[in-house]
């Protein structure tokens, strides 16, 4: 994607979070540091990288060292992980008119969440309500419902709803009864039927473990995934916290996904930032299966006057694509 939008995308929450997060993180510089770190650590490790320290000098350090530093400055305790970020209510808007099944969202999500196995968290459905209406591509994330059926039925409070709207899973607590999966009408949850196969990529596992130590596992849903527990899309709280957009949003080449804060009433897809209420009003946003009363936090904009023809997506469409193994990422 265009370079000029990178900043925009990474710091989309800057305005909104200035009071909140700036104080929490302790200066914009550190947030930059952390975000850069994160950006690097997933692609390579053992490499030297340039960093700016708090006193303004540029140093070159090994990536692993940096993680140590970040770890020592743990900022994740600044908000209650089960309560959520204060005064936020995250929403996503998915513009079906723009989606052409490029599947970049899915691969980015798989990559960043180290998803292995058969079922990706983010799926793009080929939908057609009935014979006479038009087919369209519909990406689905977890809907992060305000009346989450999955949370209602969880016997051990392993999956829970935060005040900032996110529905997360504590995979240290999950007992694997899969009741939540049965309860979810959006089929959004996946189960780790076996020990996740991260392959030989020890570095990845190492990074992941470090990330896991650095952050609470609740925030890093499924990192690492655990056998016999349930996983699902988590709206990337680890990214949000660092003023970044969820991975699917940044990865989408067409700007299909808009993400933002309902209280702020803004959403952005990285390129453009819009008023949420206005967007929903103008584009007639709707939610999936409204009749079930689940009150999802994900809105869809109907596939009207599409940018790309439905057929273009068919080239990418497979009946089944196994999620790439970590090795291949």
């Amino acid at each position: 994607m265009e370079n000029n939008s990178t900043n925009n995308r990474r710091y989309f929450l800057d305005n909104g979070l200035k009071l909140g997060l700036a104080a929490i993180i302790g200066g914009i510089g550190f947030s930059k540091l952390a975000s850069k770190l994160y950006g690097k650590s997933e692609t390579n490790s053992g490499e030297k990288m340039e960093l700016m320290t708090t006193d303004g000098t540029i140093v070159e350090v090994d990536a692993s060292e940096v993680v140590e530093v970040a770890h020592s400055q743990d900022h994740e305790t600044k908000y209650n992980l089960r309560e959520g970020m204060p005064n936020r209510k995250f929403v996503m808007v998915i513009d079906l008119a723009k989606c052409k099944n490029a599947l970049k969202c899915q691969s980015a999500c798989n990559k960043h969440h180290y998803i292995t196995g058969e079922h990706a968290w983010l799926k793009v459905y080929k939908m057609q309500e009935e014979e006479d209406t038009a087919p369209y591509w519909m990406p689905t994330t977890c809907m992060h419902c305000d009346h989450p059926a999955c949370v209602t039925v969880c016997p051990v409070d392993a999956t829970f709803k935060r005040r900032d709207g996110l529905v997360l899973i504590d995979n240290d607590r999950c007992i694997g009864c899969r009741f939540c999966m049965a309860a979810c009408p959006y089929s959004t949850r996946v189960f780790n039927w076996s020990e996740p196969d991260y392959g030989e990529a020890s570095e990845v596992v190492l990074n992941m473990n470090m990330a896991h130590e650095e952050h609470n596992s609740i925030e890093f849903a499924g990192m690492p995934s655990k056998i016999g527990t349930v996983d699902k899309c988590d709206f990337c709280p680890h990214a949000i916290k660092e003023d970044k957009l969820p991975h699917c949003v940044t990865a989408c080449p067409n700007g299909v996904f808009y993400f933002g804060d309902k209280y702020e009433d803004t959403v952005t897809n990285g390129d453009e930032t819009l008023r949420l209420s206005k967007l929903l009003k103008e584009k007639s946003g709707y939610r999936l299966m409204e009749g079930l009363g689940t009150k999802p936090s994900v809105y869809y904009l109907p596939p009207v006057n599409r940018l790309v023809d439905f057929k273009e997506g068919l080239s990418e469409y497979r009946n089944y694509n196994s999620v790439e193994k970590i090795d291949d990422l």
Binding site: T152, V153, V156, D157, R173, I175, G176, R178, F191, I227
Partner: peptide
């Protein structure tokens, strides 16, 4: 159960709503 080792969670973290 996917995690029979966590059986005790049912009693430690039990949720009456479920």
């Amino acid at each position: 159960m996917g995690r029979p080792d966590r059986l005790m969670n049912l009693f430690i973290h039990g949720r009456m709503q479920s």
